[in-house]
Simulated assay, not measured.
Amino acid sequence: MFKYILRRVGYMLLTLFIISTVTFFMMHLIPGDPLGAMANKLPEQAKANYYAKYGLDKPLFEQYTIFLKQLITEGDLGESLKYPGKSVTETLLTNSKVSGVNGAIALTFGVSTGIIMGIIAALNKNKWTDYLITFIAMMGITIPAFVLASMFQYLFSVKWQLLPTSGWGEPKYMILPIMTMCIGGQATYVRYIKANMLEVMGQDYIMTAEAKGVDRFHVIKDHVMKNAFLPCITILVGQISGIFTGSFIIEKMFGIPGLGFYYVSSINDRDYTMIIGTTIFAAALFVVAQLIIDIAYTIFDPRIRIK
């Protein structure tokens, strides 16, 4: 296990190196000047000082070398070009917490309710409860998040005036975005749990256990549930890594100062350092999640062995 983790960590670092390198050069290949109008309004000497501060007066490869050295030795992603003096690393940590709070609550509710509904649907196949839960899940999957957000804002904010339309800072501002994000995850787990349980329940060893007189509760608990949940680990861990990067659509509509909203703003502002930093942060979360998935599989299913 230790050798496997060590090897995977090496692959992770290589992946992050490639991603950061490609992102860095792609950003600098975009036509135009990242400082643009801000620097053009300054006197020539001030403009030269401004470019020197961010190293933009140096050749591209030298800029890359400085960036990589700071990243490896200090973990420093530099300063924002749009907001001078604002650290990219600090911004990522601050805004990812905002996204993480909403995302974690939404994921918890979505997963827990989705699993329960999926189990009920599977155990009541072709009954009215199955049809109702399947209909709810299909609606959750097919209706886009921005449509749900608009509907909730209209109903709860405009029509009934129960909750604020947008904002941040108090628990009441979190309810609508959490409801919006929760529904998509809930629908996904309903589908996966129901499909996996029905597949497992049709296996020969389940029929054999029932034929031997094992009561249905223990068959479901000891055999069906464990094997049905295993494929969902991949989705769950991937979603956990994604909650910190936020959903720019939801955050934009509800005025949440999360990382997703900030990422889109940095693209519009051509804030190179912020774009590169956010991309590396998201990539790091993803590759770590993949390692956790592999380890989690071995914990939940001892038959799987990693080498």
Rank of each mutant, 00 (worst) to 15 (best):
V264P: 02
V287Q: 11
I250G: 00
M225A: 14
I292L: 11
A283K: 07
K212M: 14
G213N: 09
D271P: 04
Y189K: 07
A289H: 13
Y189H: 10
F244C: 05
T278F: 12
A289E: 01
F217Q: 09
I206S: 05
T188Q: 10
A282G: 01
D204F: 08
Y272N: 01
L230Y: 02
T188M: 09
I220M: 14
L259G: 05
T245W: 05
A209R: 07
T188K: 08
D215G: 05
V190L: 10
A195V: 08
I250Y: 01
F261P: 00
R191E: 14
I243A: 07
F281L: 12
I276Q: 04
L291R: 15
G246V: 02
L230P: 08
V190Q: 06
A282P: 06
I267W: 03
K252D: 09
M201N: 11
I249A: 01
F217A: 08
G260A: 07
A282C: 09
M253H: 07
G202K: 11
S266H: 02
G213A: 12
G260C: 04
T245A: 09
T208Q: 13
I193K: 05
G213T: 11
M207A: 12
G258N: 04
T234S: 13
D215H: 11
G185R: 06
I193P: 01
I250S: 00
H223C: 10
K194Y: 15
G277C: 09
D271C: 03
I206V: 14
A211W: 02
T234V: 11
G258F: 01
F229L: 15
D269L: 07
T245S: 12
V288I: 15
I276H: 02
H218N: 14
L259Y: 08
L285F: 15
A284C: 13
V190P: 03
L198P: 03
M201R: 09
Q203W: 10
I243Y: 07
I235C: 08
K212D: 10
I249H: 06
R191F: 05
G185L: 11
N227Y: 06
I206H: 05
